[in-house]
Amino acid sequence: MSEIEFLDWVRGPGFQIAAVIFVAGVIIRILEILMLGRKKNLAEARGSEMLGGLRTIVTRSMHDKATFQRSAFTIVSGYIFHTGLLLSIFFFAPHILMFKEVFGLSWPSLPTPVIDALAVISIIALLTIIARRMSNKVMRFLNTPGDYLAWLLTITPLVTGYMAFHRIGLPAPTLLAIHILSVEILLVLFPFTKLMHAFTLFMARWYNGAISGYRGVAS
């Protein structure tokens, strides 16, 4: 297989396979959760479930000062890495073109040096996160192979993307192909790892907010 053939495969059949598994997997997982259903609350309401749910979806991204201080590292590193990751996924011009091709939607991009910097920042954040995961008492206790897998699946596209952009080590087509392949692996495993939280967190937050909101508490 020549490197351009490799690139063509990941841009063609590889992408097809990954996208189909990703979309199907996510939908199945979501239905698998939602269809379990939950009982209607029969107690007299003190507040709105819907509003509470929606409110928590938003407010759970912000923490009160004391909580922030207690979990500063987790919150700050999490913020940095998620921001960098999401911005470099959704605001890099070539990526937007991909979304446009698949979904027909497009939006303005950020300058490439900015994306470049964001990717580096995310990579550094992810490295500190794994260092902490391996050293912190609570994290070590919680760790499962799945945590390391999810970390690997996330950092690989960042690193390969960075390498492809700067053409480090290998011919450009190969680097680009490896980058796309790493994203495809991520997509394929996404629905079956904790990466799924990217979707289910909205449900979880909504439920949390709805349960509290019903009782008149903003959670």
């Binding site: 959760i33 909580t67 979990s71 987790t74 919680l142 904790k194 799924m196 289910t200």
Partner: peptide, 11 residues
């Protein structure tokens, strides 16, 4: 939904 979402952050 809760179990599917836990990211083992330890917070």
């Amino acid at each position: 939904a809760f179990f599917s979402s836990c990211v083992h952050c330890g917070m």
